[in-house]
């Protein structure tokens, strides 16, 4: 079950402060990287929502964010709609598309779920790639940014744009938090832990999964429309399955099922990528090896590992304090389980 622990809140606040600090102190290139991190963080947050709490390992989340970007581009660059309205539409349509994908894929499990989401992601990719209306391989240029000059914000200033993205990320985090601590989110975690029992309890498994997938899609639509505004140009490459795979990698590196972990993972991933590319072209080799090591070591990820260690230390302290009481309970439990074992054999 998801609980917004003080540690998680502290890390989120720290991350927010670090972003604000970076936005004000870093030079142009640094702020661009910051924006990249924040948008990526939204995508992996959305992925953690379904993968970390619903066991839905989606290989189409990158593509869905790309869908959001294209929808934003269509409604602004092609149809001339106000960017704010287009952002809302992009989020809603991406959410609806996600709902359809979620409904269909929720009936499959394990590797078939992964393949099914991959198929839908690739379908979107090929569609965009082949569509001459959407510019095909060449992509689309001339995408406008939101105009907030009315309230004195100039989003063509990269610092202010980065802060807008940060605000969106925080809203997305609060949204995901709310979902996970709602009835729907609780049910989803139950389904992840035991789908068969959830059905036997009367949970509408497919609907619950599909709805959370759709809500995750809302975040992706928002993230996509921000990334379209960030570069002001989009290409089908945004929807490539390697992006979805990369998002999954980041979730794992940061800490699956912790919500804040993947955000940290996104920061670590992007920073490491830029750092490594100063020395070598072979960034993929390094990330590949790190990924293999992390997964084989048990896949707790950066934040997951920290949380695990702190929890272990706390448990020890509590145990020390309650040692006498616990010992008593232990023996009682032990005799019970012993009785159980005896009967079984």
């Amino acid at each position: 079950m998801f609980y917004q622990t003080p540690l998680r809140t502290a890390v989120l606040l720290l991350f927010t402060l670090a972003c604000i600090y970076a936005a004000f102190t870093a030079e142009y290139f640094g702020v661009e990287i910051l924006t990249e991190i924040i948008i990526l963080a939204m995508i992996v947050l959305a992925l953690d929502l379904v993968a970390g709490f619903g066991g839905m390992v989606s290989l189409c989340h990158g593509a869905l964010a790309g869908v959001g970007a294209y929808i934003f581009a269509i409604f602004t660059a092609k149809l001339g709609l106000h960017p704010l309205l287009a952002m809302g539409i992009a989020a809603l349509i991406t959410g609806a598309v996600s709902w359809v994908i979620g409904t269909i894929c929720s009936k499959t499990h394990g590797i078939y779920f992964i393949m099914a989401t991959l198929a839908f992601g690739q379908m979107a990719y090929s569609f965009v790639f082949e569509s001459s209306y959407l510019g095909g391989d060449n992509g689309m240029a001339g995408i406008p940014r939101l105009d907030l000059s009315m309230i004195g914000i100039d989003l063509f200033d990269s610092k202010q744009f980065a802060l807008l993205c940060l605000a969106c990320l925080l809203v997305a985090y609060l949204f995901a938090w709310r979902i996970l601590t709602s009835g729907l989110g609780r049910s989803l975690v139950g389904i992840m832990h035991n789908e068969k029992r959830s059905r036997a309890l009367g949970q509408n498994v497919v609907q619950i999964k599909a709805q959370v997938f759709a809500l995750s899609g809302l975040i992706l639509g928002l993230a996509g429309s921000l990334s379209a505004q960030h570069i002001m140009f989009i290409s089908p490459n945004l929807l490539s399955w390697t992006h979805s795979g990369e998002a999954l990698v980041i979730v794992i590196l940061g800490g699956l099922g912790t919500l804040i972990g993947p955000i940290i993972g996104a920061a670590a991933f992007v920073l490491l990528k830029h750092e490594v590319s100063n020395y070598t072209d072979h960034w993929h080799l390094i990330v590949g090896i790190i990924l293999i090591i992390v997964v084989m070591a048990g896949a707790r990820g950066i934040y997951g590992e920290i949380e695990h260690r702190i929890a272990k230390r706390c448990a020890k302290r509590v145990q020390k304090e309650q040692a006498p009481k616990q010992a008593k309970e232990k023996t009682k439990e032990h005799s019970l389980s012993h009785a159980g074992l005896k009967k079984e054999h």
């Binding site: 993968a51 394990g110 960034w283 993929h284 990924l291 997964v295």
Partner: peptide, 27 residues
């Protein structure tokens, strides 16, 4: 070692292999 792991771990480890092998061929 990955045989008993779930599909996600397998997908991720072999995804990591794709990355690594891609760059090794480049190297």
């Amino acid at each position: 070692r990955m045989r008993s792991s779930g599909p996600m771990a397998q997908v991720l480890v072999t995804f990591g292999l794709i990355f690594a092998l891609l760059d090794i061929t480049r190297l």
